[in-house]
Structures are given as structure tokens and as C-alpha cells.
């Protein structure tokens, strides 16, 4: 398989953040603060794009750090620190999404699709392309379109994609963080990227060509 599937590593030796966490386990509060400083941005980036709200992402990031601290006495370095941290983040985010979904079920229909049925792909593309009369694609519009495309993915696809994009994790590492098999991660990422292509490429092409020239089929996700 991949190069990331290697022999078990001595994480304490190779990962300075594991060493920091071991200091936290031994009661070093400054080491905990250092870990927060090192990972706050990375965690907030993934969580913000995962849940679509900066405010909620901050709450979740704090919950993640709290769980890290609470787990300090039981901590054993069995993975890179970042992998362990994002495993916790995945749990925290999943719980939050479940709570939000339960609330939304009563209040309004969920606009985020599931893994197997991404919703409104073509609607999202059409809505975004109609925003810009002159079809001049600027960075803000692209970012908005990408954000909408990401939101249309299922939660697990989104997490796998964000870990791959922002954390540069390989399939093995994502599998560990999300507690899935490597083939499952491969499938998730593949479906996520196919969905993104279906949404974003037509949008980019509409941006450079007259609308009537666009007839790009949107494939159903497997």
C-alpha cells in the first residue's frame, strides 16, 4: 500500500508533540499551553470548515483540548499526537453534528447531504453562478462556491477531505483518526473529490464561457 503504512514507530522519539503530551501527563501545565498554541489554528481550520461556523468551531476546539487534558493520566503514545488529537476532534464534531441534526429535525430540513446522497449539487452550482452577472470569478466568490461545495458533502467525506487537504494526512493516518479502514477512507475521499469535481468544474467553466454553452452532466454519486 502506501509509505505511510510502516512499522510501529517510537512516537516519543519522533514526535515532539508526543513528548509535550507526556509532560502534560506528568503534570506540566506549561506543556499543555504549548500544545494549545501549536494546534489551535490547525484544529480551528478543520473544525470551522467541518461545521461551517467559526463560533461553533471555537467551542468544539475548546472541548477537544479539555478532553485532551482530561485524558492526560491515561495517555500512551500509540500514534502521532496530531492523529490522536484529530481522533478526539472527530468524536467531538460528530457528537455536535448529531445534536444539531436532532434539533434541526424539528426546526427545519437539513441542507447537508449524507454520504450516499449529496444533495443539491446542481442547485448549488446554479445558485452560485447566478450570483455573478458578469461571470468574473474573484477569490471571494470561489471561496464561497468551494465552501458551499464542501457543505454539500456528507460529514465523513468532509472530515476525510479536510484532514487530507489541511493536515496533509495519508490514507492510513486518516483511517486512524476517523477509526475507519484504509479502503473506507479511499472510498470516502474518492467520492468526496468526485462530488467536488461535479460541482466546481462546471462552475469554473461557466465563469469563462457563455451560460448557454454549458451542458455539463452532473453524475450521481455511487
Amino acid at each position: 500500500m502506501s509509505a505511510s503504512q510502516s512499522q510501529p514507530l517510537d512516537y516519543e522519539l519522533h514526535d515532539p508533540d508526543v513528548r509535550l503530551m507526556l509532560q502534560v501527563r506528568d503534570g506540566n501545565a506549561a506543556a499543555f499551553e504549548e500544545l494549545v498554541l501549536r494546534y489551535q489554528g490547525r484544529l480551528l481550520t478543520v473544525l470551522t470548515h467541518l461545521v461551517g461556523s467559526r463560533e461553533l468551531a471555537e467551542d468544539l476546539a475548546q472541548e477537544v483540548f479539555l478532553r485532551v487534558f482530561r485524558a492526560r493520566e491515561r495517555y500512551e503514545p500509540g500514534a502521532k499526537f496530531s492523529t490522536w488529537l484529530f481522533t478526539i476532534a472527530n468524536h467531538v464534531a460528530s457528537n455536535a453534528q448529531r445534536s444539531r441534526s436532532r434539533r434541526k429535525e424539528v426546526a427545519m430540513p437539513d441542507r447537508v447531504g449524507t454520504d450516499s446522497t449529496p444533495m443539491q449539487l446542481d442547485q448549488i452550482a446554479k445558485a452560485a453562478s447566478s450570483l455573478m452577472p458578469a461571470r468574473q470569478i474573484d477569490k471571494a466568490e470561489t471561496a464561497e462556491m468551494v465552501r458551499l461545495a464542501i457543505e454539500s458533502l456528507g460529514e465523513r467525506q468532509r472530515m476525510a477531505l479536510l484532514l487530507s487537504k489541511f493536515e496533509g494526512m495519508g490514507y492510513q493516518e486518516i483511517a486512524e483518526a476517523m477509526e475507519l479502514s484504509v479502503p473506507a477512507v479511499k472510498s470516502l475521499l474518492s467520492r468526496a473529490r468526485i462530488s467536488l469535481r461535479e460541482i466546481l468544474i462546471p462552475y469554473m467553466e461557466r465563469g469563462s464561457k457563455p451560460p448557454e454553452a454549458q451542458q455539463v452532466p452532473v453524475e450521481e454519486e455511487a
Binding site: 480551528l44 481550520t45 470551522t48 470548515h49 476546539a61 471561496a143 468551494v146
Partner: peptide
């Protein structure tokens, strides 16, 4: 190309007092 478009997503910076 679709993958490269994800570069448009901004990285989130933590506020000064977040830590």
C-alpha cells in the same frame, strides 16, 4: 483542478486570547 480550488478556503487563525 477541483482539488486545487480548495486552496481558496482560508485557514482559520485563532484569536489572540483563544489559547
Amino acid at each position: 483542478r477541483a482539488w486545487d480550488l480548495l486552496d481558496a478556503l482560508e485557514r482559520t487563525e485563532a484569536d489572540d486570547d483563544f489559547a
